[in-house]
Structure formats: structure tokens, C-alpha cells
């Protein structure tokens, strides 16, 4: 089990200051939910953690390793930290099984037979053992997102980042994806989840961070954030989404 620490991360795109000094911790085996309005920099924060976006300032640590150290290869970082996207981003031209096998074969250089075994194992874990040879376009959104989770899990990551994993799904699919994520959380995977699913956050999250305008406004247990928010901005947001 691994921890992620984000210290004083700043990021601007041109004149737009997206992250204005962010400190966030994800403790070992913890599920951290990040909530906040759109455009507040939640996705950019996740992308800074696995260096899909390079922070302008500040440090990111995985356990005791400073990922922002220029001597560290971004490819290495991304092997350690899995990521699941809002739009699934499965490789369109590959079957489900080959989607999971690609990085095993060409990043970890695992022989084909072993990679195949791992792929089948992980796809069975997310309940898709019968879809091994289907193409992504033949699957529902929820099935695609479960494949994406299996693809991340297959790399045996120390932590997984979820970037609004259910925002592009219909209610039924949301349920099946959240079920997989809930099980992962209970199994002790370190997870950082950007989400608007308050039900999931309440049930699974160990801590919730409220994020606005590139800053952490407030953090605490799910009850603290959802029901007894101390900050005015948090209260206003919660009032709107919880109704």
C-alpha cells in the first residue's frame, strides 16, 4: 500500500491559473474523493499526480519518491499509478483482451502467455470474462469503463486515479462501475477519485476534499463535508448537488 502526497502544486495554462498551490494527501489504502465545481482544476490535479501534466511548481511524492524530480522518467511514474478516464479511452482498434495486454507486453515486457493469463484474470475480476474478444464499440459504456479499470489493475499499480469515471454513463452503468470501485476500495487499493457521486463518496470514501478555483477549500470525513461543511462555498455547493 502506497501513499501520495501533493505539496504546493501550481499549474497555469497560459494566463489561466488552474492550480494555485494545492496540498493533498492520499494515505495508504485510503479512498480519497475530490469534489467541486467544473473547471476548478480537479482533473488537472489528477493529471499532475501521474505527470500527464507537468506541475509548474511544487512536489508530488509516491511514498518517499519525489515524482517531480527531473531525474524520474514519467513513464516509470505512470507504471506505478493507474488512471481511469471519464471517456474510458479504450484502444478502439484492439479487442478487450488486447487492450489489457498491450501495456503488459510492451511496458512490462511480460511474455504473451503470461500477459494473456493476467488479462483474463483482471477481466474476470470486473465481471467481463465473456467479453474477451469483443471490440470496445460493441460494449456498453459501463462495460467499457470496467475494461478500463481492468486495464489499469493489470499493471499492478500502487494507486489508481479516477477522473470522473461515471460522468459519461447511464444510471444502470454507473451502478455497475461503482460496484467494482467499491470492491477495490474495500480491498485496500489507494484511490483518488474525482466524482459527483455523493452516494459512493459517503459509502466508500475515507476522506473528501472540496476543491474550488484551483485550491483545496476544505477537507474532512464524508459526513463533515456533506453535512457539516464549515466553509460557505462548500455549503453552497453541497446544497445544490444534494438538494
Amino acid at each position: 500500500m502506497s501513499s501520495i502526497r501533493v505539496r504546493g502544486v501550481r499549474k497555469s495554462f497560459g494566463d489561466l491559473e488552474v492550480l494555485r498551490g494545492v496540498d493533498v494527501d492520499v494515505n495508504p489504502g485510503e479512498v480519497l474523493c475530490i469534489v467541486g465545481p467544473s473547471g476548478s482544476g480537479k482533473s488537472t490535479l489528477l493529471r499532475c499526480i501521474n505527470l500527464l501534466v507537468t506541475p509548474d511548481e511544487g512536489e508530488v511524492y509516491l511514498d518517499s519518491v519525489a515524482l517531480t524530480d527531473p531525474r524520474i522518467r514519467p513513464e516509470w511514474v505512470r507504471q506505478q499509478i493507474g488512471m481511469v478516464f471519464q471517456q474510458f479511452n479504450l484502444f478502439t482498434h484492439l479487442t478487450v483482451k488486447k487492450n489489457v495486454m498491450l501495456a503488459l507486453r510492451h511496458v512490462k515486457h511480460i511474455p504473451r502467455a503470461n500477459a494473456e493469463r493476467i488479462a483474463v484474470e483482471q477481466l474476470t475480476r470486473v465481471g467481463l470474462a465473456d467479453k474477451l474478444n469483443a471490440y470496445p464499440a460493441q460494449l456498453s459504456g459501463g462495460q467499457q469503463q470496467r475494461v478500463a479499470i481492468a486495464r489499469a489493475l493489470a499493471m499492478d499499480p500502487k494507486a489508481i486515479l479516477f477522473d470522473e469515471p461515471t460522468s459519461a454513463l447511464d444510471p444502470e452503468s454507473i451502478h455497475e462501475v461503482l460496484a467494482v470501485m467499491t470492491r477495490l476500495g474495500h480491498e485496500g487499493m489507494t484511490m483518488a477519485v474525482v466524482t459527483h457521486e455523493m452516494g459512493f463518496a459517503k459509502e466508500v470514501a475515507d476522506r473528501v476534499v472540496f476543491f474550488d478555483a484551483g485550491r483545496v477549500v476544505e477537507e474532512g470525513s464524508p459526513e463533515e463535508i456533506f453535512e457539516r461543511a464549515g466553509h460557505e462555498r462548500t455549503q453552497a455547493f453541497m446544497k445544490k448537488i444534494l438538494r
Binding site: 505512470r78 479511452n89 498491450l102 501495456a103 499493471m155
Partner: peptide
Amino acid sequence: DAADALGI
């Protein structure tokens, strides 16, 4: 993005 995120 997905390929990058897998360390490819």
C-alpha cells in the same frame, strides 16, 4: 492519453 497513462 490512455497510452501515456499506462507508461507506454
